[in-house]
Amino acid sequence: MARTSLQIVSANDLLDGDTVYWGTDGGWTRTLDSAVVVDKGTAADALLEAASVDQSLVVGPHVFAVDMVNGKPVPIHIRETLRCRRVPSVRPDLA
């Protein structure tokens, strides 16, 4: 029953608005699988704080919840699910 409460830090790229994640290499990445996954709470707060220091590359850093499925992060909320697809659900042709 206990749902793991894991989180990822995400934002939008300043120049093109694309979805980016804070990656394991200490910078923003466009690959969800390369995102740092941390526990909700202190760890997530600290990661968000660190990622938010420099906002000259991105807009709107925030955390969102994920589940780990087969070792890969999968967003829980519909909004982040749609965001990580990078195109509207009604325009799959744009992908």
């Binding site: 394991t24 740092v36 760890a43 707060d45 600290a46 990661l47 660190a50």
Partner: peptide, 16 residues
């Protein structure tokens, strides 16, 4: 963390 000091800390902004 910076706002809530504790007894151990982790840097999560980058790993490796």
């Amino acid at each position: 963390s910076n706002s809530r000091p504790g007894t151990y800390v982790v840097e999560r902004a980058f790993v490796d």
